[in-house]
């Protein structure tokens, strides 16, 4: 268990002043994650894919990142992290780097469920040691709320509009967490900034994992989900508790549908 009073003493590695919408669930999640990253006592190096996070945190010449960060392209957060981790390994092995560093890769649901899934799968199979965090708001919010592989059945997006015949997305979302579990990596979890203590605990476990780890973080989007900014945390909590969030329409049973950590020992 963490205490807010203690966390408040940590440095804001994801600083204020970025350009996220008021009430952005992704910004809240990333802030909590970067606070949690310090609980290991080790420095972190980060990567991110193109998307909301990249756009609102790093418009040149501004940066919200108080840690090293690299963005390359949309589908490439995991493959960039592969390269960073390979560099880290060789520099450690040849004695040119003498300290431990942790690597965190960020991707949205578009960059993770869809266009970046192959790169993520490859990186996990190669067993690079890094934590991949999917900030999942269940659609392509950065380009204006188009459906993704994470969008739920029936959800209205700008490419699955409700009309005289259409009733929203006609397909169910893919169960990415189960796909990740199937890779046999040592740590897979789901979390939400609405349950901050749970998320931070999972972050710590993930960063302590010797091998690849993954956390799927539900990030309510006020633009895409159409709610007032002050309701982000409440909506995230409701989504988890009422099964209306991403855990609701998957292979998980209602008993297990509260934010679940799935751990498989390699």
């Amino acid at each position: 268990m963490f205490k807010l009073a203690d966390l408040a003493k940590n440095k804001e590695l994801f600083s204020h002043g970025h350009r996220a919408c008021a009430g952005c669930g992704e910004a809240l999640g990333v802030r909590q994650i970067m606070l949690a990253a310090q609980t290991t006592g080790l420095p972190v190096v980060t990567t991110m894919c193109t998307g909301c996070l990249e756009i609102f945190s790093s418009i040149y010449p501004h940066s919200a990142w108080q840690v090293p960060m690299i963005h390359t392209a949309f589908e490439t957060s995991a493959s960039t992290a592969s390269g960073v981790e390979a560099a880290y390994r060789v520099l450690r092995r040849t004695g040119r780097l003498n300290e431990e560093i942790r690597i965190i890769a960020f991707g949205g649901d578009g960059g993770t469920y869809d266009i970046g899934l192959q790169a993520l799968s490859g990186a996990l199979e190669r067993r690079h040691r890094f934590l991949y965090v999917c900030t999942n708001n269940e659609a392509y919010m950065n380009t204006g709320v188009q459906r993704s592989g994470a969008t739920m059945f029936g959800a209205e997006t700008t490419t699955t509009p409700v009309g005289r015949k259409g009733y929203g997305k006609k397909q169910f979302e893919k169960d990415l967490t189960a796909i990740l579990v199937a890779h046999g990596i040592p740590y897979v979890a789901q979390g939400s900034p609405s349950f901050w203590n749970d998320l931070i605990t999972k972050m710590q476990k993930a960063l302590d994992t010797d091998g690849p780890s993954f956390i799927n973080v539900l990030a309510p989007c006020r633009l895409g989900w159409a709610f007032p900014p002050e309701e982000t945390i409440e909506l995230g909590r409701l989504a988890v508790n009422t099964l209306m969030g991403w855990v609701s329409v998957g292979m998980l049973t209602p008993e297990k549908s509260r934010v679940v950590a799935i751990c498989a020992v390699e």
Binding site: P43, V44, S58, P61, S63, Q66, I70, T72, I101
Partner: peptide
């Protein structure tokens, strides 16, 4: 990491 850089900003 002591001299953090941001690579590839928008």
């Amino acid at each position: 990491w002591r001299n953090p850089i941001l690579v590839g900003p928008a």
